[in-house]
């Protein structure tokens, strides 16, 4: 196991950021942490990147303890914080060189690793990092986190604020890095990215609701899921919530998803059966969690 986390707890004052988090990531996997803002993702990343001390529990990266052996861990990880954290007044190439030096490396040594990504930003080598577009910034940040060939890569919301095309490219790159044997821990608020991970954990209010492969999480959806298409959604939503047949109903993209208590309401003819997504599972788990 590349990453082992057991019973990790962290509180800021009286608010619990993380409560009893445990999970393991095998070598060379992409492990996704999916959850809304403020769920505790960044805190978890900071603890694993040896930047914060947990209140209790332990975590090891490649066998090194995050508290005792933090100096060893810092040699083998690459960390990309959620906020763009490169030097805005240094150029692309200057940033890259600086971070390579910080890791006792240089650009030539691991050029093959970043080649695919770097080639896209290379034309802007002399542009200041602060003047790059959102997608370019993330690519540069990824290059900087990769330049020393880390064993484990921590990416905290790498695709937030990035356009759809760049997001797709970004995930393609992650797949390639995984093929090179790099273990990747990635967080995202986008549910559609979850299916691209080998394994995902759904996080809410500092606790993991569920950990499994995307396929199994979807399989574990306990009910039949139906969808209604149509434009009068907003007026309908309240009406449907009061419908005695319906267990739950919520907006999903340009339609509504609903589950029934037993059989579908025969008075709603336009209902179609659909396959649940990770988002449906997340909504289901969140609802279950709040009842308990």
């Amino acid at each position: 196991m590349k990453i082992k986390v057991s019973h990790l707890t962290k509180a800021y004052g009286t608010t619990d950021a993380l409560q009893d988090i445990s999970f393991q990531v095998p070598d060379g996997q992409i492990f996704g942490i999916i959850g809304p803002d403020g769920a505790g993702k960044t805190t978890l990343f900071r603890i694993l990147a040896t930047l914060l001390l947990p209140n209790s529990g332990t975590a090891t990266i490649a066998g090194f303890d995050t508290i005792k052996d933090y100096k060893k861990i810092r040699n083998i990880i690459g960390y990309m914080p959620g906020r763009f954290s490169l030097y805005q007044d240094l150029s692309v190439i200057e940033n890259l060189e600086l971070f390579a030096t910080a890791y006792h490396s240089n650009i030539r040594e691991n050029y093959h690793l970043i080649k695919d990504i770097y080639q896209q930003i290379e034309p802007f080598n002399d542009r200041m990092a602060g003047k790059l577009s959102g997608g370019m910034k993330q690519k540069l940040a990824l290059c900087c986190a990769l330049i020393h060939k880390p064993e484990v890569l921590f990416l905290d919301e790498p695709t937030t604020g990035v356009d759809a095309v760049s997001r797709k490219e970004f995930w393609e790159m992650l797949r390639k890095l995984k093929d090179q044997g790099i273990t990747i821990l990635v967080s995202t608020p986008y549910m559609d990215e979850a299916s691209l991970c080998d394994c995902i954990a759904l996080i809410q209010n500092g606790t993991f609701l569920h950990i499994d492969t995307p396929g199994k999480i979807i399989d574990s959806f306990p009910k039949r899921l139906y969808a209604i298409e149509g434009d009068q959604r907003t007026q309908n939503l309240q009406q449907l919530r009061n419908n005695p047949y319906i267990d739950s109903v919520y907006l999903y993209g340009d339609r509504m998803h609903l589950t029934f208590k037993e059989d579908p309401d025969p008075h709603l003819p336009e209902v179609v059966l659909v396959t649940p997504s990770v988002e449906d599972c997340f909504i289901w788990l969140m609802k279950k969690d709040s009842y308990e």
Binding site: R74, I77, M80, Y87, Y103
Partner: peptide
């Protein structure tokens, strides 16, 4: 403030 310290601290520097 810029968050660069976070990256520097997570490096072996």
């Amino acid at each position: 403030e810029m968050g660069t310290m976070e990256v520097l601290l997570s490096s072996p520097l």
